[in-house]
Design a protein around this nucleic acid. Structure first.
Lengths: 244, 244
DNA sequence: GTCTATAGTCGGATAGAC
DNA sequence: GTCTATCCGACTATAGAC
């Protein structure tokens, strides 16, 4: 930590000045961010125990000791990842949930509107679970937490429940049932499940579609079918007799 | 371990005889089975790396060395678990898939029948994923394999694909689409997903239903809603105008 | 802030008694 | 078949140089 104070340092301009400290600080922040993303990938893919700090550091192009320096411990890194994921998720769909809750509180919604809102939720669900680049890592991390609850579970769980509660309100309205009816909760999970499936069973999906990774068109297809299924629950009458 | 060979041993008759060896052998088989079930639980819950052989042996009330004795290595134990799960699964729903394929090959199916067959598949899906006692462990193990493909993946994958292919045939008939249409594959995954969700997100489901574990009534509810959704895809006309 | 070296722990596998 | 004792490798975390 004394390098920056040496007088003979050539590649660091304005040594000892605010600019130099800023540069050093930025470098640290970048390292921290790279570690965070590498950890997000590793924890989501291999779980807490399966992911090794050595591998995370290597993938982040950082030193092993940097993890302890920036986060304190492997567990603390895990928590940081969870908080990061939840924060990113909230940034992506928090506004929509707040907007929906507000409209529901105000009570100015007919069923057609409710269905449209539900579709927007599922839309965003597809985006935040199957999105490209970094986004798909969030979904896998959250699902991993579900299958293998860790001390971090409360962080992710409370976030997941927020979305669940809002969806339950929508579905309850759509089906004229009580919000706390177990059937409503179950139906919400089935709606989520049809999207989640593509996140947790990605290898099987890929192999069965004959692809290496999701493209825009795949996401569009999933989105279309998932939202189509919204049309088919509640509101739309079931004409059994007309069926084949 | 020497008790059985002592002359004053009263509870082990016919020492050294065939009966004695039989008893010893049975004991070994039982130990093997206990190890298998403990490993099934541990691998499903914590993954291959997360599960420790020491813990598995402890839970199976067996010795650490017994794992190597009965299976050869931790990896071999993992493979044995995968083969066990697939064998159990096939025993539970293999017949139905064979029957369906035969009927589809014969071609004597109208849409109503197809829909009924599809519902039976989902029915059995619920049973083999959310069943009580041991059965729920199978589902979790398979899903874990999906999220975290291991050298064992091929064993579980080929089994999963068998069911997937049959379901794709059914859905294709129901929607008058080609079997190899990606939209058909995607729809099959959404159908599976609504059941799988309850397996992978069990902690969240429990907490949101306010329960400790699934009961018969919960499984019934899930089954009802899942099969209801079958009614709502294909065959049943969508009466948009009548919607609210 | 970054890095090397290392202490301390744990997990899988082995040897050999019984 | 079962069990104890032990080896060896991999991992997390720490200390301290730069």
């Amino acid at each position: 930590m004394t390098i920056g104070l040496r007088d003979d340092s050539a590649d660091v301009p304005l040594r000892g000045s605010r600019h130099y400290r800023r540069a050093q600080q930025d470098r640290g922040t970048e390292t921290r961010q790279r570690l965070l993303l590498a950890a997000l990938d590793a924890f989501g893919r291999y779980g807490f125990d399966g992911a090794s700090t050595r591998e995370i550091a290597r993938r982040a192009d950082a030193n092993l000791a940097a993890i302890v320096y920036h986060f304190g411990s492997k567990e603390a890194l895990h928590l940081a990842v969870a908080e990061y994921v939840v924060a990113q998720m909230r940034a992506k769909k928090g506004d929509l949930l707040v907007e929906i809750d507000a409209r529901l509180d105000a009570g100015d919604v007919d069923k057609a509107t409710v269905r449209r809102l539900l579709q927007r939720v599922v839309d965003i669900q597809v985006e935040t679970m199957l999105g490209d680049r970094e986004v798909d890592l969030w979904g896998r991390f959250l699902m991993r937490e579900q299958m293998e609850p860790s001390p971090v579970f409360d962080v992710t769980f409370s976030y997941m429940m927020q979305g669940h509660r809002t969806m339950r309100r929508l579905v309850a309205l759509l089906l004229d049932q009580r919000e706390d009816d177990p059937a409503v909760a179950v139906r919400v999970f089935t709606l989520l499940g049809q999207v989640v499936m593509f996140c947790v069973a990605q290898p099987m999906v890929m192999r069965s579609l004959g692809k290496q990774e999701f493209g825009m068109s795949d996401r569009e297809l999933i989105r279309r079918i998932a939202t189509e299924n919204i049309d088919r629950i509640g509101g739309v009458p079931l004409v059994r007799d007309a069926a084949g």
